[in-house]
Design a binder for these strands. Structure first.
Length: 897
DNA sequence: CAGTGAGCGAGCTTCCGCTTGACTT
């Protein structure tokens, strides 16, 4: 029987809507986007592969035409949708009503190609039965201008990311990335760290005491702080700048007290009596917070439940899928009418009618580029379940409770109260007139605060904090119960946490609700930042990358770039601007704007070394930090004063703002960093230590300080079976005994056994032979060694490794095709050409046809260039690098664990 | 950055935004 096919974005949504629409409708989901630009080389369609712009998947030479592909993991789902469409007599595209949703609808239409049936675009902003039914009855057309705006966004991001990332691969490190969102997120963290590094603290003093209002007062003892001296206000933290100096606006207007003056004043105020100079009372009023959207949920879950953004999102996802809450990726704070009704009902039930405002509260979005395709995040349904009624447990319970409380509180009355400031003073023995100040807040009606109080960052006072003051009048007399001088220091700006960085990004219109958590994931994965507790600390490589981008792509990494892009996209969506000319300006440039493509091509020589060099303690300190392939290290003068001749590693987990000049000198003085002392060599008496170096862990001996400069300590890499954690002095001495002289051959040439970068081996002059085990280094006899040398040299790995698979003759060359394991992975060869297997190939599934195809592709590129020796060496070095980096990561991970 | 010798095929990395499972540890 024919049905109407409705396609939404999310499977959970499909289930709910199917219930509302009932018989005659089949509701399925697209599961997000169904097509995209090719993500990697393997996905690029053959016909554009050889085009100069093929790697973008966008024809930048002809109207920025995108080439979309259905990703592998979406193919079976598309087949399913096509099957459902066959039996459908109408198609409703019911994806979200925002830029991305409109694009998904168009992609569905373009890919499904429905024939001879009506197609409707159906939209709704809340999932309630009346809203869905109204949406079915009032469909509209696809908004192609909105689709164009989405394509512009998509193509711009692709060009940005895929043009700029390779610049980083060449100049900083392979595998790095740049993008419209991640690069600005990284920059925020780096800029904040730079502020912390430049920060100079200021110290200032004041007086704090508790004062006695006399018996008969309901609140007899209360705290107060010194406010002014002879009518000049006493300096407080906010009067100082980041440079540790008084701000210009405060100079001459405040009294900056030091310890001596503060203590003298305490002395001079001994035993005096104070009179109340003024009492100022103001009404206090506070309105509830808006219901949750993605960012505010992430912030509160972080503050109150200690959840990371990604944990918050996956717990919320489970709540959503099981019907406990509405959709969790939203920028809207709007509640549906039925939700407002449900919230008000719960207010009445749980707190009573006096907590219920007469009219429902309506929250307008504070987010500038909000697309409002969904409701706020709230308990699902027309009536809310209390947390206890849900039967949930653990994280899900706590997150639901948070969402429920916030939603209910958002429909409660304002909190009301009174705030009071009391000033009182006395003349000190020094003749100075000292005035103290005390502020209090009393809440007379808690309103929404009874249900929900927002958490705070930086120990700020929460909204329900109260300080009670005695009821005083001008002229009343007071005495001090205690009084002391109190020293303070200004603090550097705090590092971002996941939640505060996301908040900052949202305020700058950067990123979307569905990506906030993954932005954090990206900059963590790239190694641009790492977490120290909850704080995000930038790694030094982030300084290099941010410097390159700010110097060469200032517009792209500016904090305003995305906001500007959003304006353009709005104009495209509104039909006021043209997609192609906007992209052309972005990519090729115009009178106003430097284009991305000429910028990248005209970069010229970026001095990679300079890019990675940062002075420590000012430009002329003689010490700088370098970001090297093996991590950050310092360079400073050696003992003879030779510039930058001495080096020292900087620990990976030392935050940049803790690398002071003093710390740098300390590291340079003890460059070995972490070394494990194993004991003394019984023969030489020298201390033997184990360290981690660029070629991995090794042991060495510590030469006495008076040793001649030419003396070199013995060193030896650890065997693969050893580790720094478990190595003993005995092992170390064995390693240091290498190379071992095995004997001399008939011609008198010495044969030695030693451990090298490819493992244990024998060496006779320049002729070397690998050994099979490390034990042999110590046990092999001269006869055995000579026997090995009597054999011809084993060449390469090919001899050791037989072919993994044989596939018969190649149709072109007629030579047998065999699969081998190589340094770069598995490859198929016909003896002349070698073709690496692609990501999706496997040895098991490789057919002779596919092998021939790979070889044909390879052959089309021409004969292999005779590998120059240089290239080989470079490749080998690269390999070592990767290994070293991997080890480092492991070590770091182990440390964290 | 500690220094220790051979042999060998390139191809890929990367963006942002919409969605879930399917994987492994």
């Amino acid at each position: 029987m024919a049905h109407k096919l409705v396609i939404v974005e999310s499977p959970a949504k499909a289930r709910t809507i199917a219930g509302y629409l009932g018989k005659g409708y089949v509701v399925e989901s697209s599961i997000g986007h169904i097509r995209d630009l090719p993500q990697s080389a393997a996905e690029i369609p053959a016909k554009i592969k050889d085009k100069p712009w093929g790697r973008f998947g966008v024809d930048v030479e002809n109207g920025f035409t995108p080439y979309y592909v259905v990703p592998r993991d979406k193919k079976s789902h598309m087949t399913k949708l096509k099957g459902l469409l066959k039996d459908a007599d109408e198609l409703y595209l019911a994806t979200d009503e925002d830029r991305e949703g409109e694009a998904i609808a168009w992609h569905l239409l373009d890919e499904l190609k429905p024939k001879n049936i009506p197609v409707h675009r159906m939209v709704f902003h809340e999932i309630t039965k009346p809203a869905i039914q109204a949406a079915v009855e009032n469909p509209r057309e696809l908004a192609m201008d909105l689709v164009e705006a989405q394509e512009t966004r998509r193509i711009l991001d692709r060009l940005y990311g895929y043009e700029v990332s390779p610049v980083l691969w060449r100049k900083v490190m392979s595998g790095l990335s740049a993008g419209r969102v991640q690069s600005v997120a990284t920059r925020l963290v780096v800029d904040r760290e730079r502020e912390r590094m430049a920060f100079k603290l200021a110290s200032y003093w004041d007086l704090e005491g508790s004062f006695d209002a006399g018996s008969g007062k309901d609140q007899r003892i209360f705290p107060a702080k010194l406010h002014s001296l002879d009518d000049v206000r006493v300096a407080r933290g906010s009067d100082f700048g980041q440079d540790g100096q008084l701000k210009a606006s405060a100079v001459g207007k405040v009294a900056h007290l030091d310890r001596n003056r503060a203590e003298a004043l305490v002395e001079a105020l001994g035993g005096v009596s104070y009179d109340v100079r003024s009492v100022e009372a103001k009404p206090y009023k506070r309105s509830p917070y808006a219901p949750f959207r993605t960012t505010t949920l992430q912030q509160e879950a972080s503050r109150k439940l200690g959840m990371s953004s990604s944990v918050t999102m996956s717990v919320a996802q489970r709540l959503y899928e099981n019907g406990y809450i509405t959709y969790m990726r939203t920028d809207s704070t709007t509640l549906s009418e039925s939700a407002i009704g449900a919230a008000r009902e719960q207010v009445r039930e749980l707190y009573g009618a006096e907590y219920l405002p007469e009219k429902p509260r309506v929250y307008a979005s504070k987010v500038k580029n909000a697309q409002e395709a969904h409701e706020a995040i709230r308990p699902a349904g027309d009536t809310f379940r209390t947390p206890a009624q849900t039967g949930l447990t653990g994280e899900q319970f706590r997150l639901y409770e948070l969402i429920w409380m916030r939603t209910v509180a958002s429909q409660m009355r304002d909190a009301e109260g009174r705030s009071v400031t009391i000033r009182f003073g006395a003349q000190a023995a020094t003749g100075e007139d000292a005035v103290f100040s005390s502020s209090g807040r009393v809440i007379t009606f808690h309103g929404f605060l009874k249900a929900y109080v927002e958490g705070t960052d930086d120990n700020a006072a929460s909204d329900d904090a109260e300080t009670r003051l005695p009821n005083l009048n001008e002229g009343d007399r007071l005495s001090a119960a205690s009084l002391q001088a109190s020293g303070h220091e200004t603090k550097p700006p705090a590092r971002y946490t996941e939640a505060t960085l996301i908040k900052e990004l949202e305020e700058r219109e950067i990123g979307r609700p569905s990506t906030y958590a993954s932005i954090i994931g990206t900059i963590l994965n790239r190694g641009y930042v790492y977490k120290k507790g909850t704080a995000l600390v930038p790694a030094w490589i982030a300084f290099s990358v941010t410097r390159l981008l700010t110097e060469h792509f200032p517009r792209l990494i500016s904090y305003e770039f995305t906001a500007g892009m959003e304006d353009v996209l709005d104009d495209i969506a509104g039909g006021r601007r043209d997609r192609v000319s906007e992209l052309a300006e972005f990519y090729y440039g115009s009178d106003r704007v430097a284009g991305l493509h000429p910028l990248v091509n005209g970069l010229g020589d970026i001095d990679a070394k300079e890019l990675a060099t940062f002075p420590v303690g000012g430009d002329d300190s003689g010490i700088h930090l370098r970001v090297g392939k093996y991590g950050p290290y310092l360079e400073g003068p050696d003992d003879d004063g030779v510039e930058f001749a001495k080096r020292a590693n900087v620990p990976d987990d030392l935050p940049p703002d803790e690398l002071t000049l003093e710390k740098a000198k300390e590291l340079l003085a003890n460059p070995s960093g972490e070394e494990i002392v194993l004991g003394a060599d019984p023969e030489s008496g020298l201390q033997i230590v184990a360290k981690s170096g660029r070629f991995g862990p090794y042991v060495t001996e510590v030469l006495p300080e008076d040793a001649p400069k030419s003396a070199k300590p013995r060193t030896g890499s650890l065997f693969k079976t050893m580790s720094l954690d478990s190595i003993t002095l005995e092992d170390a001495l064995k390693l240091l005994s290498l190379p071992r002289v095995v004997g001399t051959d008939a011609e008198g040439v010495e044969i030695t056994a030693q451990n090298g970068r490819y493992g244990p081996y024998l060496k006779r002059g320049t002729d070397s032979r690998s050994l099979t085990s490390e034990d042999q280094l110590f046990t092999i006899t001269l006869d055995e060694a000579l026997a090995i040398y009597a054999q011809p040299k084993q060449r390469g790995r090919a001899a050791a490794a037989p072919p993994l698979k044989e596939l018969g003759p190649d149709p072109v060359s007629g030579q047998p095709m065999v699969v081998k394991a190589g340094r770069f992975g598995e490859y198929v060869t016909d003896g002349e050409y070698n073709a690496t297997l692609r990501k999706d190939d496997s040895i098991e599934a490789l057919t002779p046809e596919r092998a021939a195809e790979l070889l044909a592709e390879r052959r089309a590129k021409g004969p292999a260039k005779k590998a120059a020796k240089k290239t080989t060496k470079k490749a080998a070095a690269k390999k070592t690098t990767k290994k070293a980096a991997a080890k480092k990561t492991t070590k770091k991970a182990a440390k964290k664990a």
